[in-house]
Design a binder for these strands. Structure first.
Lengths: 338, 338
DNA sequence: ATGAAAGCGCTAACAG
DNA sequence: CTGTTAGCGCTTTCAT
């Protein structure tokens, strides 16, 4: 090197020149392809190090892989999704793949937007977490890139599915409340636009209603609807409490909503048994002690990645994997009059 | 097969043919470039819709923009980082840009890895959140893409900086504890490898020590070190408590660590005043009531994006913006003997 | 075992 | 106002 380092990124051409070989040779070394002598590999490797060479993903993308997997997440504020992402990331360790996250935020069209952003960037595979996207959109996407659908319970022969056993989870939650003697149990869930089957919340809602029916409490069913997040949830429960609801217990569709319910009940000084769903880390905090349905988020995220990698490697038969849940009983359902 | 829709993605060429114009024309319409008649724009737009055309980012990347901004996040489990990402995302609404997140996870080399993954993918700009990357690495990166450094307090004329006023925040926290009568105050922070200047935790540590010194308590300073996360934090505090620490209060370097301290104290039945940092949403939950230093995460994330966009638009003078903090007093420092 | 050369889809001069 | 054309950096036959 003579003077300052080149301001521009080194290309495969630069490496080839420095090593005195052809671009094709460098490319082969890069990809561990067949047909390179040890001597050549050595020189090329040295030149790459010397020039601090890094292949440009965009150029690669024009011909083949991007070595990028994308995951669409609906709500960064929900810690359960962070666990999925962590599981996915750790499953990628030691592989040449990199995970990128596309946040979807609220809004029914946002899921599609995020997914398409990922496809536009030519990721080699996509994990779609509870995407609010209709079948047509999903089929289209899975036509151009391997997809693992996370959370939803509709299956397809075009993509794989990883989900928790929401029916069992909801039943366990309700059974627990019944066992404790509760009869006036409300279900706190998202608005109609977010809580219908095949979405997890839709399944949980269905099982709530089925459980109430089976217990002969069908006409006492109370479904409370809220916007996403702990704040809106607390607001809704605050209003229910102020309106003098007779509910003694709440089965919340996920932990964030449950925390909101606990907040409202605590503020109002009203005893209210609360069960959540997911078992985010804070649920076990002594100050909260939220009884909840545990889902193995990390394991599920890791499995989703494995499935994607298998698809990329050539598998074509669709897979559908349901993870077991586990009820975690804590103080939120053991409070004085809970 | 001549019946089914083309399985392959439509290209600019396909659109041009369908509209009976040249590729250049389509490209111009796409970019709103100067010099297209209304008629042509109309036909091209129709063809794009008809073919469901979406430009390939990778191909664009070879010539210019990717319309992608990358953010490197050190810890998805920390809700403060989720707020930054949300602020960044919302600041991008209405622009043609898309945000992608590269998770760094633990490990000193992970920050660099994530940042380089972003650069390899040719994002148009990068937000590096408290990156564990030395100056050389950072300068190299900022040589090839606009960078906004988030959190750290070292400045450079190569990149912009957005940070909170950590010195003021730490002073406010300590002053609050002093005002309450505490003298034996421990500081709970990360290990040496993560808590040194110019990192936020380094600044908070320095101010803790300065405050103790100024109060004539220099030799009573207690610095507790932990790995990242609520669990490890609880473990450390559990041990301190078991070892009979004399501390009556803990200033934790961030809320997750504070929650861990509260968990340990609660389990042990020991009254321990706790102050956190960041003010994550759960801090205000009645079950927790964590006194903490509020940082406007969303606003900071949004500002980082604005700076990046300005840089991309041509600004060259470096910017350095410090956000004000605000102490939120809650019950964790008002407990019985707190 | 190695290299030459043809594109991948797009943008940006440049020419008309 | 519209079209032609030359690449961007890489992978991948296909010769040699």
């Amino acid at each position: 090197m003579t003077g300052a380092p080149p301001p521009r990124h080194a290309t495969i051409e630069d490496v080839a020149r420095a090593a005195g070989v052809s671009r094709a040779a460098v490319s082969k070394v890069l990809r561990n392809a067949y047909g390179v002598s040890d001597g050549m590999r050595e020189r090329v490797t040295a030149a790459m190090a010397e020039l601090n060479y890094r292949p440009r993903i965009a150029a690669r993308a024009m011909r083949g892989r991007t070595y990028t997997l994308g995951i669409e997440l609906p709500d960064l504020a929900n810690h359960f999704f962070a666990r999925i992402a962590r599981g996915a990331t750790s499953a990628l360790e030691g592989t040449p793949y990199q995970l990128i996250i596309a946040p979807a935020e609220a809004g029914s069209r946002e899921g599609l937007r995020a997914l398409e952003a990922l496809v536009d960037r030519q990721v080699d595979g996509v994990i779609a977490v509870s995407p609010r996207v209709d079948e047509a959109g999903l089929e289209r996407i899975s036509g151009s890139v391997p997809v693992v659908m996370f959370g939803r319970h509709d299956t397809s022969d075009r993509y794989d599915v990883v989900a928790g056993d929401d029916a069992a989870g909801a039943r366990a939650a309700m059974q627990h409340l019944f066992d404790l003697g509760h009869r006036r149990i409300a279900h706190l869930t998202l608005h109609e636009s977010g809580a219908f089957e095949p979405f997890p919340h839709g399944v949980r809602l269905r099982e709530y209603e089925a459980a109430m029916d089976a217990a002969g409490l069908g006409e006492r069913a109370m479904v409370w609807r809220t916007d996403e997040g702990e704040g809106p949830s607390a607001e809704v429960v605050r209003r229910m409490l102020a309106d003098g609801t007779t509910a003694t217990a709440v089965f919340a569709a996920h932990d964030e909503l449950a925390f909101g319910a606990m907040r409202a009940a605590s503020e109002a000084g009203v005893p209210l048994a609360v069960v959540g769903y997911d078992d985010v880390p804070m649920a076990s905090h002594p100050g909260l002690g939220l009884t909840t349905v545990h889902q193995p988020g990390e394991a599920m995220g890791a499995r989703a990645v494995e499935m994607l990698l298998e698809r990329i490697a050539g598998r074509t038969e669709p897979m559908h994997e349901i993870f077991e849940i586990e009820l975690k009983v804590r103080t939120s359902t053991r409070a004085p009059s809970g």
